[in-house]
């Protein structure tokens, strides 16, 4: 597989360097670590918000650093959770003296490394709490569900709550509210290729697709003959509608990294048509690349039932490059 990279082992560090150099007004880098923080440092008195995970999900997570969203993003190796010492640096960079909330996606590695970092930070006298996002309905057992694109809504809403001066407990409560209501599901027609090994995440025949993929290049829960996007949308919405009642929702059609915008809008067209026919009111709509999986060709659909509080925080200003309103 061809890749536009230098030394594969330097991919993440060179990406971080590039981001900071291109947007010095927004980003800073913690010395010697792949952690992106705000250019102007932690905001005194504000609850800090830290997320991160493996790289390969751009614009997640560093693209969500900015006013109204994250204070630091910890960038692990591609698809590999960052280590506790790295997360600790992120926590320190985000700590404005009023505690730090970690937004963690539900993968055993991420949860372990972020929990270890929280223990280390507490040893350093920083108040830390965390929320785990597990929005992927492809996995039936709720405890095992992966954190996928719905995590972006947690960043946005918790970030706005923190920016408005809420306490750590309050920011955690709203983050939990989003995490417990948001639901996503994804699919792919082409895999992505790991930069170090050059191998595809899975081998797929020309006429097949994977339903229920995660965001780490792994296979889906079901392999099917490829069908047109209208039918694929029916399939994914079928799962999502079982868990999200008709009403006011935010909807996100998220590209997996290798999907043309034209296809994302075609997908959105069918999503909107079907949801409206089923009695959903699409109060806020997002179409684009929010949580990707390298160059994977596919998409995910996320639904978040809205109330006034969540809507207000979704609409609050954000300077994050990955979430321009």
């Amino acid at each position: 597989m061809k890749k536009l990279i230098g030394e594969a082992s330097e991919l993440v560090s060179q990406m971080v360097e590039g981001m900071v150099h291109a947007h010095p007004e927004l980003y800073g880098r913690v010395d010697g670590v792949n952690v992106i923080c705000r250019a102007d440092g932690a905001k005194s008195g504000k609850v800090g918000l830290v997320s991160g995970g493996g790289s390969g999900h751009e614009p997640a997570h560093a693209g969500y650093v900015g006013d109204g969203m994250l204070d630091a993003a910890v960038c692990g190796e591609v698809f590999t959770s960052p280590t506790p010492d790295m997360v600790l640096e992120g926590i320190k960079a985000a700590d404005g003296g009023n505690g730090v909330l970690l937004v963690v996606k539900n993968y055993s590695g991420d949860v372990m490394n972020f929990e270890l970092a929280a223990e280390l930070a507490e040893g350093d006298g920083i108040k830390v709490d965390h929320v785990v996002v597990a929005d992927d309905v492809a996995i039936s057992n709720k405890e095992d569900r992966r954190g996928v694109a719905g995590t972006v809504f947690v960043h946005k809403i918790a970030g706005a709550a923190a920016a408005s001066g809420k306490s750590l407990e309050e920011v955690k409560a709203i983050a939990e509210k989003v995490a417990s209501h948001v639901r996503s599901m994804g699919m792919a027609v082409e895999p992505c290729y790991m930069p170090v090994s050059g191998k595809p995440g899975f081998d797929l025949n020309e006429d097949e697709m994977e339903i229920g993929i995660g965001i780490h290049g792994e296979r889906g829960v079901e392999r099917k003959p490829v069908s047109d996007v209208d039918a694929i949308v029916d399939d994914l919405l079928g799962h999502l509608q079982k868990e999200v009642e008709p009403g006011e929702v935010a909807v996100m059609v998220n590209g997996m990294g290798g999907t043309p915008l034209s296809e994302l809008y075609v997908t959105y067209h069918f999503v909107a048509q079907k949801l409206e026919a089923a009695g959903y009111k699409l109060k806020r709509k997002y179409v684009g690349n929010y949580m990707t999986s390298l160059e994977m060709h596919g998409f995910s659909i996320t639904l978040l039932p809205l109330d006034d509080e969540m809507t207000a925080y979704l609409d609050a200003p954000s300077s994050a490059l990955g979430f321009k309103l």
């Binding site: 493996g54 190796e77 280590t83 506790p84 010492d85 055993s108 590695g109 372990m112 490394n113 270890l116």
Partner: peptide, 9 residues
Amino acid sequence: SKVGGAAGP
């Protein structure tokens, strides 16, 4: 501090 993922911890 070097392995990452779940295997590291």
